[in-house]
Write a protein that binds this DNA or RNA. Structure first.
Length: 511
RNA sequence: GGGCCGGUAGCUCAGUUGGCAGAGCAUCUGCCUUUUAAGCAGAGGGUCGCGGGUUCGAGUCCCGCCCGGCUCACCA
């Protein structure tokens, strides 16, 4: 028998002994008078004398995280919801039967205790137990008590153990929850209505990404998991919801990295009678507001940086390439991006400065794509403090409205923080004829083999034909924002169950 | 997909030039009625990720594979 099975057998035997003592192995409930957190908070300031006088009675439950035996007495740490409370079990106080139960307990067991509060010789608030019950047994051993669970793979695969063994993980997800709650209430305060739009779509639109495929049997219908809610949310704006938002999952069938999980959470919202400038103003208000609510400050540690969400920088994409160009002699001019040949010369200059990582700019690529790629290569990692990058090439923005004076550029911004794209927003294109032309241009790209190019969406164009008010829309990546406010270097550390290969045994027995 | 790093007891980790598979925690037995990384004495626990190869001998060297991490590419 393997050691692991032996441990399991030991605990089965203990559970049988516990039942033989007359305790239920899996009782149905425990009537607690306090949570552990309520007790530690309410009695924190009471002295040993005050407690000895009052002997406050409590019924409290949780998981045993440490057991310290002393012969005919013993201590244990009861944890619940990330809080800890010591219990003290004496044979003469609980009786033979309950003390025998105490001796059969293992680390990880869930128990309920009844007793009175006191302070030990060393001053620690503890429950002097008069009644002990088992609520559920841990049949497998818990991770080690002071190093926690370190194995990264095990932490993701068995997140429940990660949460039990590593208190800071629990904190990350508490902050994530506060952040989402803050965003929701910030949107509600501004008069936005929360909606839910289809996750399964006959056509995956609203972004440039490859989708996941699925199938509905009864309708015999091929469907895609959505890559963005955008086109549905704008249909709702046509329908008269002037301010809508959705906080939900998007699915993109792309690579996995420290900044990308195949499913990720976005806040996406639309505001009628507004343009992207209004959304810059909104974002400048919104982020400090929600970051303050989630962490109690607007400036947060992120790796080697301190990120200040109360101050925003701003460049156009063309300005940013100039600004962050590494060398004066070859610094491009704004006019260099007007024409294909001059843009390619800028790429060549960049590649001369970075021969090890040359930027590929195939001749058939649109000039807009080349400029956007150039921007990412030159600037992205340097945008540490919150920075708006405004005005994108029309070729990479098929759903955004052109600038009135420069049809090749659109009214759009992306917000960068710590080298990551956090938000993306634009003045929405609401001219159905122009939208049709944009879709046609995208389809032409798709024919050239650009798999993530946008498809034609006739129903969306029909919706625009009924008239969409001038509208601005924005998406904010919740996972990445959570990374920033929890100082997490990997997106997997802010997603409870990140996608991993399943741990199935292969024919040769390996994993 | 490329590059680099890792996988040894339930957990956290050592393992030297190729020479008997180790420690701490956890577990088990005994002692212990205010400890808190409780303590003391003893015991058990291993497919060294998987499969080949080299060798008298492989955790260690070589090849292939699996899983994971970081990074580059792609993307948000």
């Amino acid at each position: 028998m393997s050691f692991e099975l032996e441990l399991l057998e030991q605990r089965r035997a203990k559970l049988e002994q516990i039942e033989a003592l007359g305790f239920a192995a899996y009782p149905y409930k425990f009537d607690f008078s306090h949570t552990v957190a309520q007790i530690t908070e309410a009695y924190a300031s009471q002295s040993a004398e005050e407690l000895a006088q009052a002997k406050p009675e409590v019924r409290v439950c949780g998981r045993l995280q440490a057991i310290r035996g002393h012969g005919k007495a013993g201590f244990a740490d009861l944890t619940q919801g990330g809080s800890r409370l010591q219990i003290y079990v004496r044979k003469d106080a609980v009786g033979e039967r309950a003390f025998h139960l105490y001796e059969l307990l293992d680390l990880g067991d869930l128990v309920g205790v009844e007793g009175y509060l006191f302070r030990t010789r060393t001053g620690e608030l503890s429950v002097h137990v008069t009644n002990l019950t088992l609520l559920a047994k841990a049949m497998l051993p818990m991770p080690e008590k002071w190093h926690g669970l370190q194995d990264v793979e095990a932490r993701y695969r068995q997140r429940y153990l990660d949460l039990l063994a590593n208190p800071e993980v629990r904190k990350v997800f508490a902050v994530r929850s506060r952040l989402i709650r803050a965003l929701r209430s910030a949107m509600e305060r501004r008069g936005y209505i929360e909606v839910e739009t289809p996750m399964m779509q006959p056509q995956a639109g609203g972004a440039a990404a490859r989708p996941f495929h699925t199938h509905h049997n009864a309708l015999d219908l091929d469907l895609y998991l959505r890559i963005a809610p955008e086109l549905y949310l704008k249909r709702l704006v046509v329908g008269g919801f002037d301010r809508v938002y959705e906080i939900n999952r998007n699915f993109r069938n792309e690579g996995i990295s420290t900044h990308h999980n195949p499913e990720f959470t976005m806040l996406e919202f639309y505001q009628a009678y507004s343009d992207y400038r209004d959304l810059i103003a909104l974002t400048e208000q919104l982020l400090p507001e929600v970051v303050m609510e989630a962490c109690g400050t607007t400036s947060v540690e992120f790796g080697e940086y301190r990120i200040d969400f109360s101050r925003f920088h701003r460049y156009t994409m063309r300005q940013a390439i100039r600004e962050f160009w590494p060398e004066d002699a070859s610094r491009p001019a704004i006019e260099d991006f007007c024409d294909r040949r001059r843009t390619l010369a800028v790429v060549e200059a960049w590649n001369r400065l970075n021969p090890s990582q040359p930027l590929l700019a195939p001749p058939e690529e649109t000039n807009g794509s080349t400029i956007a790629n150039l921007f990412e290569a030159v600037c992205e990692t340097k945008l540490v403090q919150p920075t708006f990058i405004c005005e994108f090439p029309v070729e990479v923005s098929p759903l955004a409205k052109s600038k009135p004076d420069e049809p090749g550029w659109v009214e759009r911004f992306e917000l960068y923080v710590a080298g990551m794209e956090i938000a993306n927003a634009y003045s929405e294109l609401n001219d159905p004829e122009e939208q049709r032309k944009r879709f046609e241009a995208q389809m032409a790209l798709r024919e050239q083999g650009v798999a993530e190019a946008h498809g034609m969406d006739e129903d969306y164009i029909r919706a625009l034909c009924y008239g969409m008010p001038p509208t601005a829309g924005e998406g904010i990546g919740i996972d990445r924002l959570t990374m920033l406010v929890t100082n997490s270097r990997s997106i997997r550390d802010v997603i409870l169950f990140p996608l991993l290969r399943p741990e199935t045994a292969t024919p040769d027995g390996s994993q």
